[in-house]
Simulated assay, not measured.
Amino acid sequence: MGLFNAFAGNLQQVSNDQLMQQYGPFLFSGEQITNGYQLIRDAVVFTNMRIIFIDKQGATGAKARYKTIHLDSIVDVEVETAGAIADDSEINITYLKDVYQRKTGAETLGEVTFEFPRKFDIAPVYRYLGELAMANRQRINAK
């Protein structure tokens, strides 16, 4: 079932030990992995500072591209829960692409969507990201 979900575009949770072994050298000082998910070769790693997207490239996957969304830039989160039969769950994150998070009226937003298998309990991930987005909005709008 895990391989089928991976081919269907769904992320599967991976142990923090395995993630640390593979991606630990790319963590910043003081950064810790909180959880992560694998999609065949690619991965998404959540840390206490950011979300890291690992895009393995080439036939062997030895080459990889690392993209980051800093947790303090997340401003909105949407969730779509799985249906009764074959639907998957999705979380859509909206984040500020601007380095300086000021009220300029010209913010640049980015979006990313994660798909999870139907049986995955998406509620804790949604609550975590949603609370983070609310705190970020309050912080940004208080300036």
Rank of each mutant, 00 (worst) to 15 (best):
I33C: 02
I74G: 15
G58T: 06
E80H: 14
E111I: 07
I93V: 15
K67R: 07
F26A: 15
D88A: 11
T113M: 02
E80F: 11
I33Y: 06
D76C: 05
G24R: 00
Q21K: 07
D55T: 13
T68P: 00
G30S: 07
K56G: 13
R102P: 00
G105V: 15
I51T: 11
G30H: 07
V77E: 10
G24D: 06
A84D: 08
M49K: 03
F114I: 07
I74P: 05
V44S: 12
E107W: 01
L109Q: 10
G58A: 13
N16W: 06
I93P: 06
E80N: 14
Y23I: 06
G36C: 08
I33A: 09
E80P: 01
G105N: 15
G110Q: 12
I91V: 14
F26L: 11
N92I: 01
E111D: 12
T68Q: 02
T94K: 10
N35P: 01
Y66F: 12
I74Q: 12
T81I: 04
I54A: 06
E80M: 11
L27E: 14
K67S: 15
D42W: 01
Y66H: 08
T68L: 05
G58H: 04
R102T: 06
G58C: 12
T108K: 11
N92C: 04
D55Q: 14
F53M: 08
G61M: 12
V79N: 13
I54R: 01
T113H: 00
T47W: 01
G105Q: 13
S73D: 13
V44H: 07
K56Q: 15
F114M: 08
V77S: 09
A86F: 13
D87P: 00
F26D: 15
Q101N: 00
A82Y: 03
D76T: 06
I33P: 00
E90P: 00
F53H: 08
L19N: 10
E111Q: 10
L96M: 02
M49E: 14
T81F: 10
I33G: 01
D87T: 04
R50Y: 02
S89C: 05
K97H: 12
I33Q: 03
I54W: 05
T104E: 13
T108Q: 14
G61D: 14
V79Y: 11
K67I: 04
R102K: 09
Y95W: 15
R41C: 12
E78T: 03
E115N: 14
I33F: 03
M49N: 08
S29I: 10
Q38Y: 12
E78C: 02
Y66W: 08
D17G: 15
Q38H: 10
Y23N: 10
D88W: 02
E80C: 12
A84R: 02
N35G: 11
A84M: 05
A86D: 15
P25F: 15
F28W: 08
I40G: 11
L39I: 02
V112W: 11
I51L: 12
A82Q: 04
T108S: 15
V44A: 13
G61N: 13
L39P: 02
I33R: 01
F114E: 08
E78G: 02
M20W: 03
D98N: 10
S89T: 05
T108C: 10
G24K: 01
V79T: 15
A62Y: 13
F53Q: 04
T34A: 09
A64Y: 07
A62H: 14
Y37C: 01
F53N: 03
F114Q: 06
A59M: 04
L71N: 07
E111K: 07
S89Y: 01
Y100H: 04
T60L: 01
Q21N: 09
